[in-house]
Simulated scan of single mutants.
Amino acid sequence: MTGPAPAVAAVRAAVAAALGDVGPGELVLVACSGGADSLALAAGAAFVGRKTGWRVGAMVVDHGLQPGSDEVAATAATACVALGLDPVDVVRVDPTGPGGPEASARAARYAALDVPEAAAVLLGHTLDDQAETVLLGLARGSGARALAGMPATRGRFRRPLLGLRRADTEAACAAQGLTAWQDPTNDGSRPDAPLRSRVRTEVLPTLDRVLGPGVAQALARTAAQLREDADALDGLAGELLAELRTHAAGLDVDALANAPDAIRRRALRTAMIEAGSPAGALSRAHVLAVDALVTDWHGQGPVALPGGVAARRAYGRLALGPADSGVQPS
């Protein structure tokens, strides 16, 4: 008796490993677009769920960004039902919002998928997606947190397939007779293709050809190492911020100045976000300008930040709050 195809076995093993803490009877939801990655994940979760006793369902998010998106969503839902998933829901979201269409669509998608009743929500990102994320972060000059890529687990969201290639999910679908949807936006040769698709179609193959095979795996390893470093530094920054806030209003600039640059700047960025500045709008230039209030003070005025927030220094303390409040630290 032969076992499953290697790619099918790999997907199933990845799902089992990622959800080892989920008990029988708990609800696991698969975010399924109908593409090869999420369809292979849905099939793997359905199989493992039958062995473990999970309730495995699916959510199909229709952004309405392409003609016929409702038909694509309905086809994906039908495929999930055929795999034995239950419940299977199609959710239509409004992709309009701040940050451009891609960012707003992503925000709407995650909001719809964040189902409190689910023990885990599975996302179909692969090692290839991780490599593309790292390359885009490098090109944009992003910091270590962005270069750390996508986490395997964040809250109830889990990405079991981050160790597998896109070729593995395509092979898993083929071996199980599953017909995956081919998203036309993934064709990076089109003049209107999203930047990520062009990285996928043009940049990564070029890097493999010039540097040799294995670039995607190397980028994913880099992301994992940077995530460890970023987690450690973020933890130290959080401890610094918590200690500073146990005292009087505002942050003591002398205590901040004595902290290592990486920890101090992370603490300042966190304080800016907590004061109301959108994380996605904060650049390194903003962080360095506020940092200068601590390390290069020569009487400069408030630093304006995104979201109508300002940083001010007075009487040896740094305060962050509404730009028009005029409140000074005491």
Rank of each mutant, 00 (worst) to 15 (best):
A36K: 12
A107F: 00
A224D: 09
A275T: 04
E170A: 15
E243G: 13
V81G: 13
V48I: 11
C80M: 13
G321Y: 06
T75G: 12
R140L: 14
R55W: 07
P205W: 02
S189L: 14
A76H: 02
R196I: 05
H298Q: 15
Q300A: 11
A58W: 02
V290E: 02
G99M: 06
A112T: 06
Q328W: 15
H247A: 12
S283C: 01
A171Q: 08
L288A: 14
L226V: 08
D296Y: 06
T2C: 09
D291E: 12
A82D: 15
D114P: 03
A10C: 09
V56C: 07
D86Q: 10
V48E: 14
D252F: 10
H247Y: 08
R140C: 10
G64I: 09
A111R: 10
G308S: 10
L147D: 00
S33M: 04
D94S: 12
A249L: 15
A230N: 06
V91N: 05
R266A: 07
T206W: 14
A146C: 13
V72N: 09
A311Y: 07
H286V: 03
P184G: 03
A144Y: 02
L161D: 05
E239N: 00
T201V: 12
A118K: 00
G321K: 03
G44S: 09
I273L: 11
D254E: 15
L127R: 04
R55P: 00
G124R: 02
R264Q: 02
L147K: 00
G250D: 08
P101G: 11
R165P: 03
G177A: 09
P205Q: 02
P87M: 13
A323F: 11
T185E: 15
R158L: 08
A237N: 04
G97V: 12
D70N: 09
D324E: 15
A230F: 05
V309H: 04
A304Y: 09
L19Q: 00
G143Q: 00
L41T: 02
D168H: 07
R221D: 12
N186V: 14
G235I: 12
P205A: 06
M1L: 13
N186C: 14
A118I: 01
L136I: 13
M59E: 07
M1Q: 13
Q300E: 11
E202C: 14
S330W: 12
G124Y: 00
L241A: 08
L65W: 10
D261E: 13
V303P: 03
A267K: 03
G214Y: 08
R313W: 05
A218D: 05
M272L: 12
A175D: 05
A103R: 07
G141I: 10
M1Y: 14
G163V: 04
T126A: 07
L135V: 15
D114F: 07
A16Q: 11
L251W: 07
S38P: 08
G141Q: 09
A119R: 12
A255C: 09
G326W: 14
T96M: 09
V134P: 02
M272N: 01
A112M: 04
